[in-house]
Nucleic acid binder design. Sequence first.
DNA 1: CCTACCGATCGGTAGG
DNA 2: CCTACCGATCGGTAGG
Lengths: 189, 189
Amino acid sequence: MTRTTREDVVTAAGRLFAADGYDGTSMRDLGREVGLLGSSLYAHVAGKQELLVEVVMRGSLLFEDSAREAVDTPGTTRDQLRAFIAGHVGVVLGHLDVARTFLNEARALDPEHRAQVIAARDAYEATLRWILAVGRDNGSFRAGLDPKLDGIFILSILNAIDRWYQADGVIEPERLVDELYEFVLAGLS
Amino acid sequence: MTRTTREDVVTAAGRLFAADGYDGTSMRDLGREVGLLGSSLYAHVAGKQELLVEVVMRGSLLFEDSAREAVDTPGTTRDQLRAFIAGHVGVVLGHLDVARTFLNEARALDPEHRAQVIAARDAYEATLRWILAVGRDNGSFRAGLDPKLDGIFILSILNAIDRWYQADGVIEPERLVDELYEFVLAGLS
DNA sequence: CCTACCGATCGGTAGG
DNA sequence: CCTACCGATCGGTAGG
């Protein structure tokens, strides 16, 4: 046991926010998680809200980077769609606590940061819609596709993964990506 | 303004639980909503938890009835799938507050009722899986379909509707059902 | 259905 | 990083 760092506190906060929610996590709970008293946390952070902002912003960046990589993927529009799905799965499974907090606890943010998160989500969704529209126009997907509505359907599936996926087996991440891609692509064809 | 009834309190509780969450709703908030003091609510209900149980159980019953009706629908397996989707949309759009509370606030329930809700959700999911398996075996859907995984994908889409649907137009409920059915059916074909 | 409370818990601070 | 606290808010109760 070395000294507790700010990073330890942020990581533990993500864990508790993901498991019990922001409102369901007290500073005393968080202190216990890192082996300190609740009041001692204020030597590391300005407050509870700052911790939420930090965790959520990390999630926001992860999804943003993933979306950019998907668009930069060489190949067909279908390859980009697959990269988008694979990237999303990678973020969720690779950073479960951060992803869960980003997806489910944003409403506890102060108005300014909440607006920032909503903007980030809109941009993420816009990237997917862009892929769908391009694919519709170049014949990769069906002509009658509705980028907005079909984008919502796809994101609904992706954003629910953290709720049912269990790390300990049952289905491998690679197979999950395959099945997701297959199901979604069919819906677009 | 007539006398406040227990029903008024339960309805208002559903509204606030859906909007602000169970933890985010205080008995004083709820009292204000119905024009009473927080402490006066205890003349109508035993406690805050009882209100959550009541709202969530109403949601549970609505989805259960809807699933049964879908299975009892005459016609092809595809017709049953469509009825399942239409029923789900009907419950969500027709009882937004109850559906939201059922879908998002069950974790605030005491262990016994939470177990009940999980069992109800499992049964609902089992009904959908049954439709998928039957349809796979009778040729309505593709042979390689995975009832469990594809059922999760479908429910992911259905359970997210309350998060983005806006009652004031944009898309009609009938068109939503059509688009959902089209997208899902393609994923199963 | 209100008045007047209760004990518990919350986020956070002063001072060391 | 702890001690000792603070004001606010919470769910809930006694008595009318």
